[in-house]
Design a protein around this nucleic acid. Structure first.
Lengths: 196, 196
DNA sequence: CTTCAAACTGAACGACTGTGCAGTTACACT
DNA sequence: AGTGTAACTGCACAGTCGTTCAGTTTGAAG
């Protein structure tokens, strides 16, 4: 049961990553066995090692891919010119991105402690550089008087924590639409930044 | 090696809970074995079962005790009369409480998915009642014009997420003192609530 | 000194863990 | 039809898991 049409389309590799992501998100990295992942893909456990050197690499690849996408897509985002507009764009971007990939966000936030020290350092660096993106907006806005805040590093961390929390309770089809959630958070983030 | 002075002071039970809390916080519930906990206490694995029926109950007891303390101590807290003062009190309380018990906060936030459905429902109910405490403040403040916010339920969740994030980065002896952190967050929380 | 129960050990249980590997299957290409 | 090779199975290994329990140690009470 190998090889699909058109040369050798790698279809199982992505399926392994998708299954691992879903299971890690639902039960946690440590609580998921390679055999469970394999069963989800419809394959025996040994076959997973054609696509990953080990379980740890599976987690790391998932998290690295997610963080890369977070950073890359933010760079591609059209940005407003004023700090206020840029903050709004950040809010909207973070919420949309998080709601589009709830499992990846969840895993990336929860499984940091299950990375080896080397892997942790790499993910942590990407995470920090994302925080720096927001902090730069806050610093610019404080400089030109748009924001009134006491500590821009703290504010960046607080705002990201607030935004990431959305994935914890949002249910599509629930009381609030995505647009409404974005709108409400835009107001709260502006408020937290001391924007007029 | 049993029995200390003064009748039969139960000293090992608390030590088991303390060790479990620390290890669960550091490595995660699923990644910690009963043998590791036992080693930390200085006892063989089997002896743990004198103090807990099983591993799951150990986690649940830890989380229930934490949530009970969160709720009880908040009820004992002297509260201001105005919604603004009450919001400030909540901010200060949540940060102080979290920084005093970082491991318990961490475990209570991270290990929800490792609870059995019955245990999860109980913890979730306590968590919701804590959120309701904050929401009541926000509703009152919106009614009397102190706060300007679009959705008080969302605001409660957002503010709690923001405050709980503190435990993720705060290091005592770091750049900021506790008092300073409380002060900065007071301003951001007020801002997020749309307070003048 | 004897009695008794609580505290604890040490070994065992069946099940499960991540990982390796010899052998099998199935398809693309000649 | 034959060949090569990527994909995959099925079993094995050496550990570890949570949990149980018969037996030992302990220290206080009588």
């Amino acid at each position: 049961m190998a090889r699909k049409t058109g040369s050798h389309a790698d279809i199982t590799g992505p399926r392994v990553r998708a299954a691992a992501l879903q299971l890690f998100a639902r039960h946690g990295y440590a609580a998921v066995s390679m055999r469970q992942i394999a069963a989800e893909v419809g394959v025996q456990a040994g076959a997973l090692y054609l696509y990953t050197p080990d379980k740890q690499a599976l987690l790391f690849d998932l998290m690295r891919a997610h963080m890369r996408e977070v950073l890359d897509r933010w760079r591609d985002e059209p940005k407003g010119l004023s700090p206020g507009e840029r903050l709004d764009a950040f809010t909207r971007y973070h919420i949309r991105f998080s709601l589009d990939r709830p499992e990846a966000v969840f895993v990336s936030n929860m499984e940091l402690r299950n990375l080896t020290p080397e892997h942790f350092a790499q993910i942590e660096a990407m995470r920090r550089s994302y925080e720096d993106e927001l902090e730069a907006i806050l610093v610019a806005g404080r400089a030109d008087g748009t924001f009134r805040l006491e500590d821009s590093k703290l504010a960046a961390l607080a705002i990201i924590a607030m935004l990431t929390g959305v994935t914890g309770w949002f249910r599509s089809g629930g009381r609030l639409s995505r647009d409404r959630v974005e709108q409400v958070y835009r107001g709260m983030v502006r408020g937290a930044a001391g924007s007029a």
